[in-house]
Amino acid sequence: MRLLSASETRIGVIGALGLASVAMLPLLDQGYTLTLTVNIMLYVVLCTAWALFSGPTHYISLATAAFYGLGTYAVALGIDILPFPLLVLIGALVAGVVAGLVGVATLRLSGVYFVIFTLGLAELIRQVVTWLQSEMGSSLGLYVLTDLREQHLLWMLTGMAALVYVAGWLINRSRLGFAMRIIGNDETVARHVGIDTALAKVVLFIISGTIIGAVGAILAPRYSYITPTGAFNSMISFQVVIMALLGGVHRLWGPLLGVIPFTILFDQVSSRFPNHTSLVVGLAFIAIVYLLPRGVLGFFADLASLRRRFRIVLVEDGKAVP
């Protein structure tokens, strides 16, 4: 059996080169471009991990902020006692366990129930964490003081991006990936060909949640002072949905196409018009549904097929192709 097809090798090489050049960036710039690139890589990993689950299942998960916050909080609570890499692992595991519990409770049911449940999940965990902290008499704010700088975060995120792409590629060519595509087409058929649909969805949700938890942990040093309100910020969940859908979720690299423009746009808006961010998020949702229902990816695919058809018409008319 062939291990890699020619196009897979090509994409792999381009991807590796791309990630390597991102990792070189700190040599050139230590300022705004670096910060922006860290943001972009952050959302690339989050959105791709989100799309791993939500792309094939069509379940819109708003649990990103919850998993991310759990990762951040694991670091905040443990930074004085345990080494950072171990805390990232713990953050990932905690997020994975919560994803499993949420999945078992909600994924047997229709998509609407799932959306509603995940909508408030971050807020729920925030309330519980706040309450536990006050019960145990610890202060709400926690300091995370490390030697990690923006370039270290960038390198870790680049590693996570490589991980999430390889994981996504492996899943896509595995039985689990095939099962998810069948579920996305027709869940009834999926069950009748022997797929345990609930289990498949839960497994994928756990994978996605674990990655998001790890990312939250990696980013914890950036905030240095961490409060429940700051760590469990629901806005991340919505931004991830917008960027992933804007790019397109039918290809592994689709979300990338949404992350880059939206991160730059959002960065500009929040620095120049900080009171308009909600409005921008709202309009972005609306624009995606009405103008780009299949994302930038789908738009280009449609454009390409339109041009092919157009060419055929021209050739049939006996005219030269422009």
Binding site: H58, I60, S110, G111, V112, V115, F238, V241, L245, N275, H276, T277, S278, L279, V280, V281, G282, L283, A284, F285, I286, A287, I288, V289, Y290, P293
Partner: peptide
Amino acid sequence: RGQLEVDSILVTFGLMFAFQGLMLL
């Protein structure tokens, strides 16, 4: 039905943020 569900969830999310943004302003 499933597609309508996803679309309407996304659009009403959009309206939610847009209205919230307007009221904040």
